[in-house]
Simulated assay, not measured.
Amino acid sequence: MARSPDRRPGFSRRAQTSQFIGYVVAIAGAIVGAALLVMSRYDPPTFRALRSGAAELTVPISTALGSANGALAAVPDAIGGWFRLHGENERMRAELVTTGRLLTRARVLGHENARLRRLLALRDGATDAVVTARLVSSTAGSTRRFGLLNAGFLQGVREGQPVEGPDGLVGRVVEVGPDSARVLLLIDAESLIPVQRAGDGLPGIVAGRGDALVDIRAVNPAAGEVRPGDLFVTSGIGGIYAPGVPVTRVVRRSGDGGLGRPLAEPDTLDVAIVRHAFLPPPPPARNAVPPVLRRGKP
């Protein structure tokens, strides 16, 4: 069947209008193109002016379209970068946690190393050390405060010997067994230690309270007042503790004296040194035997 020569797009009014407008635009474009071609041939200045004007009109549009294309092209990179940075952030957070744990462990080991070095220097520099032993336990739930050493008279420990730690005085031995010894801690309520203030030698007494602090009482309050921050060391009076051993530091005033915190805390101490007493105890007194007078002689 031969095709109908009628090219109208059916009976649709919209289709007919669209086809007509297409024809008009095509004819107008051809006319404008021909006119521009003739103008470029016979009137170049005018053609250049029109071309420049068209460029001025199209440059902002091209710039906007280029920016839009760049923004759209950057969207996948931004999404990928977000996921990449999120993963990197999580990895760095995990590394920070691991590094923090290692740093904490390094600080603990450094503190322990420094403490053991001080203890080693204390032991090597002393000629009156009896034995280095572990403070295996200490009472903390009652007013009486004792510690237990894992060394006894088989290791040379005797009653009345002072016990020191890396930071200062711990107490003195009160009971001795074959391989163990009981230490009266300086924080015990029955503990009294003669001391003097470092620097000016102000004499005083450190008395235990049964808790984490000690009372510091000046022997002569008129000679000077106890101030926070003062360091008190053993005075050597009494013959048990050698002079110059750090005992406590004042934390605040209390009446005519002050409250101090022991420099050697038994709750955190694990190694201690037992020393000979500063002055050995006097020998036991012998019973005097009256002279026997021989008969017949004066």
Rank of each mutant, 00 (worst) to 15 (best):
S4T: 13
D6R: 12
Q16N: 13
A26Y: 06
I27K: 01
G29L: 11
V38L: 13
S40Y: 01
R41T: 04
R41L: 11
P44F: 07
R51F: 05
A55F: 08
P60Q: 14
T63S: 10
T63Y: 13
L65Q: 14
N69S: 11
N69R: 11
A74S: 13
V75S: 05
G87R: 11
E88M: 11
N89I: 05
N89T: 15
R93G: 01
V97C: 02
T98P: 02
T98S: 10
R101A: 03
L102G: 01
L102I: 02
L102D: 04
L103T: 09
T104L: 13
T104R: 10
G110K: 00
A114T: 14
R115D: 06
R118G: 00
R118S: 12
R123T: 07
A129S: 02
T132S: 12
S137E: 10
S138K: 12
S138H: 06
T139Q: 05
F146N: 07
G147V: 13
A151N: 11
F153W: 11
L154M: 11
Q155S: 15
V157D: 01
E159H: 00
Q161G: 07
G165L: 06
G165N: 01
P166K: 07
P166L: 09
P166A: 15
D167Y: 04
G168D: 08
I187H: 01
R197V: 04
P203Y: 00
G204L: 02
D211N: 14
L213K: 05
L213P: 05
E225F: 04
E225A: 03
V226P: 00
G229R: 05
D230N: 09
F232L: 12
F232K: 08
T234D: 10
G236Q: 02
G236A: 07
G239C: 13
G239D: 08
G244P: 09
T248S: 15
T248V: 15
R252G: 07
E265P: 02
T268H: 13
D270C: 05
D270I: 07
A272S: 03
A272D: 02
H276E: 09
P280L: 12
P283Q: 08
P283R: 13
A285L: 08
R286G: 06
P290F: 04
R294D: 07
